[in-house]
Design a protein around this nucleic acid. Sequence first.
DNA 1: AGCTAATCTTTACGTTGTCTAGATATGGCA
DNA 2: TGCCATATCTAGACAACGTAAAGATTAGCT
Lengths: 207, 207
Amino acid sequence: MGSKTKKVPKASSKVNKEATHYHHGDLRQACLEGALKFIEQGEPNFSLRDLARKIGVSHQAPYHHFKSLGELLAGLAEAGYSEFANKLLEARSKAKGRALPAMGLAYTRFAYEKPHHYRLMFLDARVRIGEHAGLGAEAERSFSELLKGVEHDYKSQRLSRAQILSKAAAVWSFTHGLSCLLLDGRLDICGLKAPLSQKDFDGLSPV
Amino acid sequence: MGSKTKKVPKASSKVNKEATHYHHGDLRQACLEGALKFIEQGEPNFSLRDLARKIGVSHQAPYHHFKSLGELLAGLAEAGYSEFANKLLEARSKAKGRALPAMGLAYTRFAYEKPHHYRLMFLDARVRIGEHAGLGAEAERSFSELLKGVEHDYKSQRLSRAQILSKAAAVWSFTHGLSCLLLDGRLDICGLKAPLSQKDFDGLSPV
DNA sequence: AGCTAATCTTTACGTTGTCTAGATATGGCA
DNA sequence: TGCCATATCTAGACAACGTAAAGATTAGCT
């Protein structure tokens, strides 16, 4: 592309973190942002070289910040989980009565609004949860939000820990399955189409 | 393997279908079987050239039977759906009382026993349902089995068509989500591990 | 036998991920 | 200030991939 896009080597008047460096300013961040754009615009199979071209660096540069494509994607997934957990938290804290219906709807809404990000987080085989420190942590935070919702809605029933976990597993399974099937349009046959309303969701949800 | 496995170019005393041909005997079938082996042995990202090598033909030969890798995978997924539908049918017809619990368990069992096949059928982005004639048909047959299960278990309640479809969507969502999360080990945190027993499943299932 | 079409091989091209080596900039230390 | 180890980035090379084009081989029919 343009050869006049000279980067700014002077981005360091006050270095505070560990980024904002050198030639590109902050290549690591640029990689994440560029990759995010690819994903959000529906091209989750972009190559590392595509990414390097888009950013305007050599095809090898990203390797100095990410061991592999998988690690880069894991970084994106982690950010996704963070936002996801916040959405769940928000739904729970705003809910008047029961929390789970609102959280379930927020769950499917997230999947609907960021389908490619959702796929990256939950379905992409290239992203191996557990192989990346922060990723697993952020994913567990999402789950713990769900758990709080269950505890809230069932607190009068004095369930055992095992019963609460079982309920959470059921809720998670249903909502995840619903989101996946909706994303793939597989529920068209049932007359269901995203985005779901609260009424739609409550009509379906067995919990 | 052995180099003495000369193919049978003479397989045509009575040609009945449209296969059993030429050099290889039946290359199309050989491709499907070879690809199936790759998938079942946990290498769903095999290349077309890998496949051609394994079969012992040129890397270009498969192209005469499949327009693309996606089409080949679609063929496998279709066979998977066929077996899947049969499993659901079997569970339904063998069930003494309610059909759905048995069918749900059979569903998760299939996913557990053929994880890579299940991923291919439901999660692999390379397989676009709807772009392949037989694939969509076989997938719908699976769903119609589920539908029959719902009709059976709720027939005393005289539900409307829409209500039945809604129930089916809920059951499908839950069971699919459960299978996915189990496959990825994401329910370990809840103390759940595949393969599930009927008791496990019934304890979870909200339907 | 000879023709046509299906089947398969060979060769070639552009792209990818990754390895290696070399260039350039940075920040700390003498 | 000058220098150097190190972090950062570029450049070149390699094997493997998907796919296309064209040539060879075989089957089935007349």
